[in-house]
């Protein structure tokens, strides 16, 4: 799990162009949107692409996205639960 968290941190920094952020700056339990990393709607779309491109997981029901992308930890939990 900790490896996956570190991998996700690196992928998020690269995919979302968060050049001023270091992996250690990202708290796995902090919200990704709003007060946490302050991501926006385009970033949300990029996270959906990231899941599909790097982890082969397609979100089937868009209503689930809010819970999946609540934090880095919730993303990792979702990947583990849905990895084929």
């Amino acid at each position: 799990m900790s490896n996956l968290i570190e991998t996700l941190k690196a992928q998020i920094i690269e995919q979302l162009n968060l050049a001023e952020l270091k992996p250690e700056d990202i708290d796995p339990n902090a919200p990704l949107f709003g007060d946490g990393l302050g991501l926006d709607s385009i970033d949300a779309l990029e996270l959906i692409v990231l899941l599909e491109k790097h982890h082969g997981i397609k979100i089937q029901d868009p209503k689930d996205a809010k819970a999946i992308f609540a934090s880095l930890q919730s993303m990792a939990d979702y990947i583990i639960a849905n990895k084929k």
């Binding site: 385009i42 970033d43 779309l45």
Partner: peptide
């Protein structure tokens, strides 16, 4: 085929 929303905008 992974179009990037962040590029597309």
């Amino acid at each position: 085929y992974f179009p990037s929303p962040a590029v597309f905008v």
